[in-house]
Amino acid sequence: MSLPQSLRTSVTPPELELIACQQLVEIIPLISMEKTAFISGAYGPLRPPHKAQVPLWMALNLKSKKKCHIVAPDWLSVEYLQDRLTEEISKKDFSSLPFRFTEIAKVLLDVASDDLQNPDRLRLLLKDIREARQAKSREGLRQLDHSALLLTRLCSMEINEIRPFFIQSMGVLTQLTRQSTSES
C-alpha cells in the first residue's frame, strides 16, 4: 500500500526495457573473452571475427565501450518495417511484430544506431507504426465490455500503456452491468 499510485497499477516502461534486455542478440565482438558465468547463464567465449550470442544488456554494455558491433535483428530493417506499416494501415488487425519490439528497437537505436542501416528512416517508420497501432487500440476501447477484451498481437509496451485505465474502466462496467438477474 505504500507504493505510489502510479506503480501500483502496472510496471513502468524502464522496467519493461529491463525485461526486454534479457533477450539474446548477435554481436560481432572486437575483444576476446573467455566463457563467463552470469546469474542468467554462461555466455561466450568471444572470439573477434566470429559472431556470438549474448543478452541484450551485455551487448549494449560492450557496445557503449566500443567493444562490439551489434547485428540488428531481422525485423529491424527498413524493408521489413515498411511492409508492416503498409499492413498496419491497410488491414484491421494488428500486424505481427515481436512482442517486445518497441523496447528493443529503442535501445538499439539509442546505443547502436551506427550498426543499423538508415537509423533515421527506422525511427520514422517505428513512429508511424506506433501511431497506426494506437489508433487501433483506441478502436478497441470503443468495444470495451465488462468481461473481456481481445486485441490480438498488441505488444508489451502498448499493453502497459493502456493497462491502468482499461482495467479501471472494465471494473466500472462490471459494477454497472447487471448480469446476476438475467442469468439466475
Binding site: S6, T9, P13, N160
Partner: peptide
C-alpha cells in the same frame, strides 16, 4: 476523473520513456 488521471499518467510515462 479518476480514469482521466490514470490515462494521462500512463501516457505521460510512456511518452517520457520514448
Amino acid at each position: 476523473r479518476e480514469l482521466f488521471v490514470l490515462a494521462q499518467e500512463s501516457a505521460k510515462r510512456t511518452k517520457k520513456w520514448y
